[in-house]
Amino acid sequence: MGDKNKADTSLNPKQRSRREFLENAGTTAALASAVPVLGISTAQAQSDTESTAAKTRIQLTVNGSRHSVDVEDRWTLVEVLRDQLDLTGTKIGCDRSECGACTVIMNGKPVYSCSQLAVWADGAQVTTVEGLASGGQLSAVQQAFVENNGPQCGFCTPGQLMTATALLSNNATPNADEVKQALVGNLCRCSNYNAIVEAVVMAGERSGGAA
């Protein structure tokens, strides 16, 4: 779990000017970060190459960090998470409320972030898959996914984990049927459903409410 704020080592002038711009605008430092595999900038383009569409400033808290982001009306929450905050763990499978790959927890409830406009998230508390582990320690449901092969291709996994986390916070020890009911909005085309349900049940049994 790399340090998401430790990014500004690039010599790319675009990134530096963007960073300065953001700092001048009073935003938190977490906006510019690096793709670890590449070690290159992920900062947004300079303003002369940005869309001229009107923007609204929203404030939201993601995984405990406060962010202030200027968003276009047409942006969705998942676009803000992935494109602006570099939280690419949240996936887009359909972009239209059919698959659940984009599930995040918003104000305590699992939602499809592809189908939430960014402006609606003003003031919201959001948890994404990157926020599940704490202090390098996987959550109980993450750990169960590791042990029981919860991910096959892994593309639906973040969404499954978020819905499961929301379930476990309401029902600490769900049985298999309750897990299936709760997770019905999260498709898995690898059809790894049995393993996912087993993992969520196991997480509940192990932690008995501390998930």
Partner: peptide, 18 residues
């Protein structure tokens, strides 16, 4: 497995270039 459950696994669409 840990990369897959923490969102660190990078799929094609997760890369960004300047």
């Amino acid at each position: 497995a840990v990369e897959r459950v923490t969102g660190e696994a990078k799929y094609s669409r997760d890369f960004k270039l300047p």
